[in-house]
Amino acid sequence: DIAKAIIDLAVYGKAQNRSYERLALFVDTIGPRLSGSKNLDTAIKYMHNALKENGLENVHLEPVKIPHWERGEESAMMVEPRCHNLAILGLGNSIATPPEGITAEILVVTSFDELHARAPEAKGKIVVYNEPYISYGETVQYRSQGAVEAAKAGAVASLIRSIASFSINSPHTGWQYYRSDVPRIPTACISVEDAEMMARMSSKGMKIVVNLKMEAKTYPDASSFNTVGEIVGSKYPEQVVLVSGHLDSWDVGQGAMDDGGGAFISWEALSLIKNLGLRPKRTLRLVLWTGEEQGGVGANQYYQLHKVNISNFDIVMESDEGTFMPTGLAFTGSDKARSIMREVMQLLQPINVTAVYENGGGTDVDYWVQDGVPGASLLDDITKYFWFHHSNGDTMTVQDPNQMNLCAAVWTVVSYVIADMEEMLPR
């Protein structure tokens, strides 16, 4: 009755709401946790102590280097045809403007294709991207590449419509990449509302002028840590089932959803197993990544350090797409492994979360998945996920304790059973 015992404890028993309560204390006390920040250092120390106090084994920190970028003060004021304060958030890795800012006319485009077609018009202007939101994966390229494409056309800055499926004038930040062969220009995201307004004005032939000020600064890479705790396996301790989420977040909101929820249900999995006095045959390893938002930076260094043991990694699991109502498990692996995962998910019939989907993994564990290690990620109802993602709205208020209980039950049953089965998943 192990699966039932886990579900009962997580959803109805003494552990119900524990991951939510732990997360609330964590994010309310520490706040957002940007890569390279003191807040992130504090968060890692906090979790290091918390995992030890929880009685996990081999609790330790693994040093890594991560980007250190700070946004500073920033503003964008539309000065023609009228004065209007634009809601902005500078994009991570952006350079600063001069202290007096950049004042330039706006060119509004809806796509890279339109920008390329109108490239002669972009010279000396601030390019505003008013790209429609299709899906995160498709639309996020405007955030990550917008500055480079605008600079190639001779623009002096870029303002990018937030990658958001809903907006209440809320800018959403994120990481953007420069190219060594293209001049660096300042870049920030703006709200959907302001992007659409400027598009309407532009389509009517109005001249729009904006003053953009950004103090953003990039420092040398900072020292940080991946945080690790384990329940050591009873029979095959060298073999590992890895469960994970990331501790770092953006510097807005509280990072409660991205990825506080994922990190804390991963911790909860080990806590529940300990509470039940269980010890799986192979080691259950919790890793709380650092520097995920800048492209899985801490996870990449973890992979480089540990890939020599790749044959002992049974499965790598990451929850980084919300901890709302769970709908199933995304899985990447061989057909044989998938058949086994389908059987494992049948254990979750009592809470009606049995589906196995394609494309399991995540930014932090894909290094392993690409090398053939089976990968899994929690799927949940992400209808509202991109309303809050990377914005000031990512707070504890969007989390739901009952939904986190269910997510924790799924995460725990899957990780425990795989860790305890006699054989590793076939590759």
Binding site: E343, E422, E423
Partner: peptide, 24 residues
């Protein structure tokens, strides 16, 4: 049955199914 690297026989899928059902 295929043998695994450590010389033990790998379980058949039916055996794996039975093992997983044991956690219900």
């Amino acid at each position: 049955r295929p043998q695994s690297k450590n010389g033990r026989y790998r379980q058949t899928f039916e055996e794996v199914k039975r093992e997983i059902a044991g956690y219900k």
